[in-house]
Design a protein around this nucleic acid. Structure first.
Lengths: 199, 199
DNA sequence: GTTCCCATGTAACCCGTTACATGATTTT
DNA sequence: AAAATCATGTAACGGGTTACATGGGAAC
């Protein structure tokens, strides 16, 4: 209704972040990296600037130039009422069923037959430790916000991330054990393990 | 070493699937949908056919035409030794650190402030039930394979999927409760809940 | 008699990435 | 003296999606 053709996803990502306050493209990149970047990916810099101009053209954001002496001048963007409406519209009508995962790691596992067993196990160990690191990162994110308006949403998104990472660690432990004891043909019998079996 | 420029990811996806046996583009699409599709995405049909021609040109696959009476003729593809080598090379050298998640669902949650609360909760409920469905799907996949060579890898990939989906369900239950009781400003205090807190 | 399954392709498009380009100030 | 921070942009490219196109046989 608001617009005939809807914008690319990243436009709404930018719009959404802009709803947190007036920002420059530079600020936006930082914020994206440590927020939506973890569950949606962060647009590259160049695209942020392009998108920002598009949002201005559409009247979804307002530009304001700030001249600085000690630092490069910058352009600050603020979401408009029209922009907020477009964001809301997208949020309510966009489908969430097209969630996409592109896990190179699981691809390797799936095609694991063709890999050296030691390397495969090392890969799983790497996955395990990066999951641990990720948990620490998300827990820090959580501690940087508490009590302020809107923090529930950060709490929820980080919560799911942490839960998944915990699941990764448990899974990795069992996967390593299974890979170590596996036959040469990597056949698997139901009695071998309980990963993912009903608790 | 094997090749100067490496191929796009989907080429290796096709190559990998081809390593399971001789197949047509049509077969490949079916197989991709129910395997790699769940954790890497499945290439669209048109791309599969394009990719298959590319792999042929590179000598990574061999084409064989099969004429049929009752059905359309088809082209079967078989991976070559060179193709296997290219696959192995990619599997060992490709980085797994660039795993990507694009969760539209979490985007909505993150920008939840702008949504109607009832709609947000409904969204989470939808997420919950699709996680349940997904578990059933993966469990069926598991039952269709057991004992045969290479099934360990299917077991592992489905296992992680099931673990994540279970985590989703638990998370959704708590998220719904929190959203129902949240203040108008959606502020969150550490005492409110335990999602993702150390067990 | 309509819908589903089999089976393969071409052409256009565009989002998003990579590479290129610049430069002052502050920190190490 | 080097590296990081701040700050913004243009140009080219290409991978992957969407739309278009075809058609016989089987199932319901």
């Amino acid at each position: 209704m608001t617009t005939s053709t809807s914008l690319p996803k990243n436009s709404y990502v930018i719009l959404g972040l802009l709803s947190f306050g007036e920002m420059s493209g530079y600020d936006l990149k930082q914020l994206a990296d440590q927020s939506v970047g973890h569950f949606f990916g962060s647009p590259v810099r160049s695209q942020i600037y392009t998108e920002l101009r598009r949002l201005s053209d559409l009247g979804y954001a307002e530009e304001r130039e700030v001249v600085q002496d000690d630092r490069p001048d910058k352009r600050l963007y603020r979401i408009t009422d029209e922009g907020l409406a477009a964001l809301r519209n997208w949020l309510t009508y966009a489908s969430t069923s097209n969630d996409v995962v592109k896990s190179h790691f699981l691809l390797k596992i799936f095609f694991g037959k063709h890999m050296d067993r030691e390397e495969l196990i090392a890969e799983v160990e790497g996955y395990r430790s990066s999951s641990i690191e990720f948990i620490e990162l998300l827990e820090q994110t959580r501690q940087n916000c508490g009590g302020e308006p809107g923090t529930l949403f950060t709490f929820l998104t980080t919560g799911l991330g942490i839960s998944h990472a915990r699941a990764n660690i448990e899974w990795a432990d069992e996967a390593i054990a299974l890979l170590k004891n596996a036959d040469a043909d990597y056949s698997w019998k139901f009695t071998d393990s309980t990963i993912g079996s009903s608790k």
